[in-house]
Design a protein around this nucleic acid. Sequence first.
DNA 1: GATTATTATTAGCTAAACCTAAATTTATGT
DNA 2: ACATAAATTTAGGTTTAGCTAATAATAATC
Lengths: 228, 228
Amino acid sequence: MPGTETTRPLSSSIGDYLKAIWALAGTGSASTTEVSGHLSVAPASVTNMLGRLQEMGLVRYERYRGASLTGRGREEALRLVRRHRLIESFLLGHLGYSWQEVHDEAERLEHAVSDEFTERLAELLGHPAHDPHGDPIPAADGTLEPDDSLPLGEAGVGGRVRISKVSDESIPVLDYLGERGLVPGRLLIIREVRHLDGVVTVEDEGGETHALGGPLTRAVFVREEAAG
Amino acid sequence: MPGTETTRPLSSSIGDYLKAIWALAGTGSASTTEVSGHLSVAPASVTNMLGRLQEMGLVRYERYRGASLTGRGREEALRLVRRHRLIESFLLGHLGYSWQEVHDEAERLEHAVSDEFTERLAELLGHPAHDPHGDPIPAADGTLEPDDSLPLGEAGVGGRVRISKVSDESIPVLDYLGERGLVPGRLLIIREVRHLDGVVTVEDEGGETHALGGPLTRAVFVREEAAG
DNA sequence: GATTATTATTAGCTAAACCTAAATTTATGT
DNA sequence: ACATAAATTTAGGTTTAGCTAATAATAATC
């Protein structure tokens, strides 16, 4: 019965590859080494797997040229991202996890939960549109809101901006920002941008000013706020 | 550095074997075919795995004689049982799962969650002592309350008994009992025990009487209630 | 107590995902 | 353009957990 096959669960490492390509390349393509580095797996293993993923119709792959996601591959990747972000939201909101602990747990759980679980969890959480970092949560139908936010470092002086998300690359960075209330949703006014050293000075809603250096201005993303 | 090794996570199938032996044998021993049947795995695979589990010090195993859990094996099995039952409680209590759906999801999740997750979940649930079936939840330290309940079919006439648990072997059975309010915690008076066909007639707190046949009297477990 | 049946074990294979080392292809620098 | 560096692939090997088919041990039956 051709065409009858239902989407059977993909092995957990396959999903990791898809997510990696999605994260690295978005709609473009990712190289073997990039994927290798992202997943901490030997390049040779990646070559192998990319071949298999192509057979499965999940990626487009050309030798020596890298891989990009097909429609189905992207769908699958976004399904995992949705799970991941909903699970993180749950761990932080209901189980009292801290930023530090959340990621690994979510990484393991996202491969074990069913769609059923995911949707019931979404319900319990009130169908949030963003996770605690401020990253958008893909919808159940695979749609992902376009992201028009930009790094704080690239915003113009004098603008009123709202923190849209905080990248989760480094734990210390998250903690530093968290302590100062520089979390998604916060409204800021950009007071100064020093192009020599990249330091950005901002004033928050309470009138406090903060000077944020290099890495921080790349971790904090903002959106222009309608003048008011 | 001998003796320094910490308990690294066991692969998920290892846990399944330990749980199977625990469920089948309790403190006694389980045969190759029993385990094979319980896990839906070929007997030869079981023989193999039992050998490996012995090497790891998790079971005691004698060729042609079956396997029993060592202290460490039992500890590990109970850790999984604790996870399983807490997760089931959560799925039923917070995510609105039905009896039918709960088991498989819990089976997958119990291998993915950390101890950290488990304990935080226990906290969220208010450290329940029993799962929704009435089965005792092993404590975090590996202790399991001794179970002195007995099948309804073996209880004496005239006794006041309380349903302690309902075995989860068959979904239809669970549904049938659930509809009639025959769930853990319910108080019953045993009105008649017909030894010819094994039918037991009970009266519940509301004065309703129920005639329960063969399989049902084995699925419902009760404890004698202090005379009142 | 010998024969048959049941239960277990051994031997030999498979598939996924990984690895290392060697060979090859693409990219870079002068 | 040509040599060298960097990235990628190929070849061959490992581990885990399963499988089948053939053999051996234990148990049951007459």
